[in-house]
Computed example of a mutant assay.
Amino acid sequence: MKKILVLFFCLVFQNILTAQINEIGVFLGGSNFIGDVGKTNYIAPNELAFGILYKWNKSPRHSYRFSYMQSTITGNDLDSEIPGRNLRGYKFKNNIKEFSAGMEFNFFDFNLHETLKKKLTPYVYTGLTYFAYDELYVINGQTRKDYTEGTFAIPMIVGVKSNIFDHIVLGFEVGARYTFTDNLDGSLPKNENLAPLQFGNINSKDWYVFTGFTLTYTFTEKPCYCAE
C-alpha cells in the first residue's frame, strides 16, 4: 500500500515538479525607433540596449517572464529615405526604461530538467510593459526635453532559444513595443502650451524595437522520479 501511495503522488505531481524551474539572466542588443522622425525600417538597431530578466517555467510550453530593460532611442530625418523628412531635418534622442511582465510560449517542449538533451524551440512573448521616457518638443528645429513621463506599451516578441550548456540557455529575439504615446520623438507634446508645435501623423502611435540576445542561467532542484 505504501509503494502504491508513493507512486500515485509521483504521478500526480510529476508535471508540476518538472515545470518549476527558474531562469535568470541578461539581455544585450540594440534598439531602434519607428515614428514620425528618422527611418521607417522596422528592424534597424542603432543604439545599445541591455537589461535583466527572470522566467518561471510553469510548463515545458510556457513561462511567466519579468524583465527590466533600458536604451537610448534616436531618430534623424537625414537618414530617412522619405524626401519630406530629409528636407525637414529633425532629429531626437530619448531615454527608455521599461518594466515588463507577461507570458512566453514555446512552439516545442522545452523541458530543462532533461539536461543531457539539447533543446531548441522558437517562442513568442507578450504581456504588458510600463516604461519611462522624456516628453519632448521641437522648436526652431531643435528638440528639447519638457519633463519625464511614463506610459504603457504592448510587447510583441518572437525569438528562438536553446540550452547550449547545462544550466545555460541562449536566445535571440526581436521585440516590437506598441506604445500608448505618440511623442517619443517630440511630434505630439502633451503640454497644451506646446500644441502649435505638433507635427507628423497624430493618428499613429510610436513604436520602439529591441533586437538582441538573452543569456540565462537555470536553477532549481530536479524532480524526484519514482523508481519502477
Rank of each mutant, 00 (worst) to 15 (best):
Thr121Pro: 03
Glu81Cys: 01
Lys205Trp: 07
Phe199Trp: 06
Gly75Phe: 04
Phe180Tyr: 12
Asp109Phe: 06
Gly141Val: 08
Asp146Pro: 00
Ser162Asp: 01
Arg88Leu: 13
Ala132Lys: 15
Asp134Ser: 14
Leu112Trp: 05
Gly51Gln: 10
Tyr225Ser: 11
Tyr208Glu: 03
Pro223Leu: 05
Tyr123Pro: 07
Ser187Lys: 02
Thr216Val: 15
Gly212Glu: 10
Lys58Met: 06
Ser187Arg: 09
Thr115Arg: 14
Asn15Arg: 14
Gln198Lys: 15
Pro196Met: 13
Leu197Tyr: 11
Ile168His: 01
Lys93Gly: 09
Val37Ile: 13
Val158Tyr: 12
Arg144Gly: 00
Asn191Leu: 06
Leu188Arg: 03
Asp77His: 08
Lys58Asn: 03
Tyr217Leu: 11
Leu215His: 01
Asn95Val: 00
Phe219Ala: 06
Gly30Asn: 12
Ala176Phe: 10
Val209Lys: 10
Val37Cys: 08
Asp36Tyr: 06
Thr18Val: 07
Ser59Phe: 08
Ser162Pro: 01
Gly102Tyr: 01
Cys226His: 04
Gly84Trp: 00
Lys161Val: 03
Val12Phe: 15
Gly84Val: 04
Ser59Pro: 03
Glu221Trp: 05
Pro60Ile: 07
Cys10Val: 11
Asn203Gln: 10
Asn15Ile: 07
Ala101Met: 15
Gly75Pro: 08
Gly150Val: 03
Gly30Arg: 07
Lys145Phe: 00
Leu112Asp: 03
Pro196Gly: 10
Cys226Ser: 06
Gly159Pro: 13
Lys117Glu: 13
Met1Lys: 13
Tyr208Arg: 06
Gly75Trp: 01
His62Thr: 07
Glu149Ile: 01
Gly102Glu: 11
Leu78Lys: 14
Ser63Tyr: 10
Met156Tyr: 08
Leu184Thr: 11
Ala227Ser: 15
Lys222Gln: 09
Asp185Glu: 02
Ala153Met: 07
Gly159Ser: 09
Leu194Tyr: 14
Asp77Tyr: 05
Asp146Tyr: 10
Gly29Pro: 09
Asn163Thr: 02
Asn140Gly: 09
Thr143Arg: 04
Asn41Tyr: 07
Leu120Trp: 14
